[in-house]
Write a protein that binds this DNA or RNA. Structure first.
Lengths: 240, 240
DNA sequence: CTGTGGGCTAAGCGCTTGCTCAGTGGTGAG
DNA sequence: CTCACCACTGAGCAAGCGCTTAGCCCACAG
């Protein structure tokens, strides 16, 4: 549903907005509500209690980090007793894995769809622009989920990490391919394709770190800005 | 006992190296050795025991995160009993604050020196290139420290965070100023200066997340690559 | 009505956490 | 030598952790 208040702020690198940051309370919650992140995005998770726990975990992990979040914290955010968590998830780590796996899958699907948009007729520049716009918007709009997805990897078990790492490699491959297509078509001038792909992904991912709903840019604005910057990075110096 | 083997691994967005990720061993270690990160960089911290604890904490926080690191872990890496930590630091959080504060101060000093290099005669493009090269190299070479500096902010107390946030704002201001100078001189074509500054900083900072010593690029190579990409982002489309 | 099944809770187990404190051992002044 | 000094240790405390268990409640089948 989009429309949220979006924008940014962060303090990230020094951020943008006033100095709005601090662990926030946020989530107005509720059906008609505003915040677009976890609420409706996980509507397909059933049963209801499992979804509430998942959403609560996303918010807690994003705010405090996995290790600083207790199972009691998650359960109480979901309005349940601590023991209820273990009816739906075997361990706290499995909760994180679910969030991470599904989050990565959705981000990858989004990227593939944007990169392949109008497969036959879209130019590499259009495809790269669409890809960046989509990926940035995802990291901004869903920055609560994205923070868990991008910054809590180290807390996964070895096997779970390996599974997620595969999705991450696929993600990078999509970006690399679009840039390679542009180079092959003569539309891009890029000496180091893997390096450029790395930079593009890095730029998009880092949005999750600094983006703040109270800031001055909407997810759409950041997406447009970044798509422009990325296209400048890869275009030949003298446009032709 | 100097350098413990430290460090970790990337996979960031898909990282760099082959697929080298997973908690890695690497660090050549030793006094004459290779790893440049914490060892000699904190040589001015005294007494000796306080420095060993600080270096141990940097490595542990970078590998596992602040909350997943125990005081016993830090102490044993430093070759001491858990109680010894409290002779030199009041709390575990104060240890983090020392690392974060000094790390931010050094990064800022580095940036200011690079941005002001040859103050009078260097062009904005040269200054921006030098700035990016220096900042990226710092995040790559000192990526263990940089990871703590950039990704453990949330674990600071409110007052300590506020102090560090001031340093971060100053950091952003340096980048913004160089870009503004370039725009004023007609050397850069940037519609949104704060937005471009944000992107530049974001790109540099994220290096700490994905950089891996076992990867295929040296800090210098990444610095050169990124300086080139950033200059393309801000240069007028038809170079003049 | 009785009986069954499963989502859920109160209580709590075993363990680890950050941190403390009485005491030890080595060093340097007198 | 004695003695104060202090970095440091061994032992351990209170609190909080992830997770388990026994049993409650209530919808639903018969």
């Amino acid at each position: 549903m989009g429309a949220g208040a979006g924008a940014e702020a962060g303090t990230g690198a020094g951020a943008d907005g006033p100095e709005a940051d601090a662990p926030g309370e946020q989530a107005p919650e509720g059906d008609g509500g505003g915040l677009p992140d976890p609420g409706d995005a996980w509507a397909d998770v059933t049963p209801d209690a499992a979804r509430r726990l998942l959403v609560a975990a996303i918010e807690a992990f994003a705010e405090r980090g996995y290790h600083a979040t207790t199972t009691r914290d998650i359960a109480s955010r979901a309005g349940m007793s601590p023991a209820a968590l273990y009816i739906h998830y075997r361990t706290k780590e499995e909760l994180l894995f679910q969030i991470s796996k599904v989050g990565h899958q959705r981000a990858l699907a989004l990227l593939e769809s944007a990169a392949g948009a109008g497969a036959g007729d879209a130019s590499p520049a259009e495809r790269l622009g669409a890809l960046v716009r989509a990926f940035v918007r995802w990291h901004a709009e869903r920055h609560t989920t994205a923070r868990v997805v991008q910054y809590e990897l180290h807390a996964l078990s070895e096997e779970h990490y390996a599974e997620v790492a595969g999705l991450r490699r696929a993600t990078e491959q999509v970006v690399r391919q679009v840039i390679e297509d542009g180079v092959a078509a003569g539309d891009f001038d890029v000496a180091d394709v893997p390096g450029a792909a790395l930079a593009v992904l890095s730029l998009c991912i880092d949005v999750a770190r600094w983006f703040n709903v109270g800031g001055r840019r909407t997810p759409e604005e950041v997406g447009d800005l970044y798509a422009d910057l990325v296209l400048r990075m890869v275009r030949p110096e003298r446009a032709g």
